[in-house]
Amino acid sequence: MNPQEAKEMTSEPPATTRGRFGREQGAATATPVAAPQQAGHRVTVGELNAYYGEQHAIKDLSIDFEPNRVTALIGPSGCGKSTLVRCINRMHEEIPGAYATGKVMVDDTDVYDSRVDVVAVRRAVGMVFQKPNPFPTMSIYDNVAAGLRLRGAKGSHLKERVEASLRSAGLWDEVKDRLAKAGIGLSGGQQQRLCIARTLAAEPEVILMDEPCSALDPIATLKIEELIDELKTKYTIVIVTHNMQQAARVADTTAFMLSGELVEHADTEKMFTNPDDDRTEQYVTGKFG
């Protein structure tokens, strides 16, 4: 990292006076959030409306994602669960004509606040996609390092972080001897764990997963579900899944969506054994969807 950047980083005043998004004074934070990186982060969605052009995909949706918990989003195809998740890291607006209104708070900061840099949001809210997508022209090492390099990490510090991320993703032992090989040379399950390592390396606060196992075989799926269980001690995780057994296995709480609305959000066990809403009951017992 060049001296200029180092200077900017170290000369940042503490979070209290400068505000969480760092651009302007007068942020709404009173209490300093000096907690170490490992403490959980809460995500609160308030009256979110998302559109694809004319199409109203998410309607007045409000939901709370508890810190250090795994929340599963379930629902039939087209119910808007992927859209919701993509609104949290503001990837939704990348689609031409798509936009969203409302609030998405990560701890005390609204990611849709006009003073917030969308690039900073995306670093802090990581995403794992349905189809593993390691960068095809990069080696395993470079893939994991990609996010870190953007922020100027270099040399031995970079190496440490890459190794740490690969360990956290449970991939280190399998690839430590071939870090220079191409990322796409791995199996599907390994590629997905590589993508997870890549996301972890960027030091996010929240991890979003959009059907991360739907392209994988059962064994790879199992490995990733174990990984999710470990990761929740450090991160807040939201996972979209169309597989209810998976939700039952990994999630602490589950939310059921239908046609862009939140129908019910409860502890997973309650959702699957004794849901409040009729529609939820019908969905989880397989009557539709």
Binding site: N2, Q4, E12, Q37, E203
Partner: peptide, 15 residues
Amino acid sequence: SAVPATTAFAPISGA
């Protein structure tokens, strides 16, 4: 450390 632990949406560097 080259990349400090952050708790906020640290803005991307000016550079």
